[in-house]
Simulated scan of single mutants.
Amino acid sequence: MTKPILDVMNMNKDFQVKSKTALFRKPTSVRVLNDISFELIEGETLSIVGESGCGKTTLGRCIVRGMDASSGNVIYHTEDGQKIEFLKLKGKKSKQYRKDIQMIFQDPYSSLSPRMSVFDIISEPLIANFNLKKSKIEEKVTEIAEKTGLNVSYLRRYPHAFSGGQRQRIAIARALITQPRLIVCDEAVSALDVSIQAQIINLLKDLQEQYQITYIFISHDLSIVQNISDRVAVMHLGRIVELASTDSLFGQPKHPYTEALMSAVPQPDPEMKKDRIILEGEVPNPANPPSGCHFHPRCAYRTDKCVQQVPELREVGYNHFTACHYAEELHLRGVQNDAANTN
């Protein structure tokens, strides 16, 4: 039986942007998250993909309350079956549940304080959330350091003494120390070398299996996403345009934007011919988005309906959702389809 751990409901996020030319002009509102809704299943890895500026990181930070959403809600399902309005928690209630949802940031060079030792960095969430004796804190930090592949004898050193991969292990240990049920990984391996990326991905998988953690994995690298994910949500200009299982999305995408992303996935066979889809036109401006489907200026399949009507995110297959007027009519290429066409 699968049960939800988180429900994101109609989340919106607006930023106020001041004009650089008109000093006294009122700031304009730019919507970077537009009515985002999805259900997260306990124990799964849901990846969120899309090009830079689509709102992936903003969504992750709004979920963990790293920034405030303009509207919407996040329903957190506790282990004992309660439903908590996570974004509205205050005081002791906030402290009680916020430790259950942690975040790993993109850049391990800037997410760790250079003035704190590794021991202090990892132990800080414990000290903030639990009333533990010093000996118990040392025991827990040592245990989690070993689980994440850190040398325990180096815990009194400072972050500058570690490589990028080791720093990301420190960040993972810090996120894991409170035994969270959900971790949001924001481009957690994009700043690392390819060989180190594989090590960190394998570490995240092992930790998920051992501690029954749920991941929201934010990334632009579809090869990694295909390897680690159970489901994938594709974002474009602040909206989710497709949401499906990994096999379904990579095998039979239902949105033209997803098809274009799939065409950029590198293939391990150098002799395999691959037709790359080059999107024409400029990336839409969030401050002045196109009418109708926001992807229509760059879509090869667009019609007048796409220009005039905003498509709703709807189910077009078993647990396969997409926001395209012609999802049932289009035959789009996925990664597996490309491989089959070369045989």
Rank of each mutant, 00 (worst) to 15 (best):
C54V: 05
Y109P: 06
R31T: 12
T58R: 08
G91Q: 01
E39T: 15
T2C: 08
K92H: 10
A22E: 15
P27H: 05
I5N: 02
D14G: 10
I63P: 07
G60E: 06
H77M: 03
D7A: 13
N10R: 13
A22I: 15
R61V: 09
S19F: 03
V30Q: 04
T28I: 13
K93R: 14
K92E: 13
L89M: 04
L6Y: 03
R98H: 12
T78D: 02
K83C: 14
F86M: 07
E42I: 09
G66Q: 13
E85M: 13
V30F: 03
K26M: 07
G53Q: 03
M9C: 15
V17N: 04
T57W: 02
E42N: 12
V74R: 00
I48Q: 01
Q82V: 10
R98G: 06
G53A: 00
N12P: 05
T2L: 12
I75G: 02
G50P: 09
K99Y: 08
Q16S: 12
S37W: 00
K83F: 10
D80H: 08
M67D: 11
Q16W: 14
D14K: 15
K88A: 14
V49K: 01
S70C: 01
M103P: 08
K90N: 12
G43W: 08
S52P: 01
I5P: 05
K20L: 15
V8C: 13
I48T: 07
D107K: 04
S110L: 10
D80S: 10
V64H: 08
K26P: 06
I75H: 02
I36G: 03
R98D: 00
L6H: 02
I75E: 12
S94F: 13
Q102I: 03
I104C: 11
R98E: 09
S19T: 00
Q96W: 05
E79M: 07
F15E: 02
N12V: 05
G66L: 15
K20V: 12
N73E: 13
G43E: 04
T21Y: 14
V30I: 10
V49Y: 02
A69S: 14
I104Y: 08
K93I: 03
Q96A: 12
C54T: 09
V8G: 10
D107C: 09
V64S: 11
E44F: 02
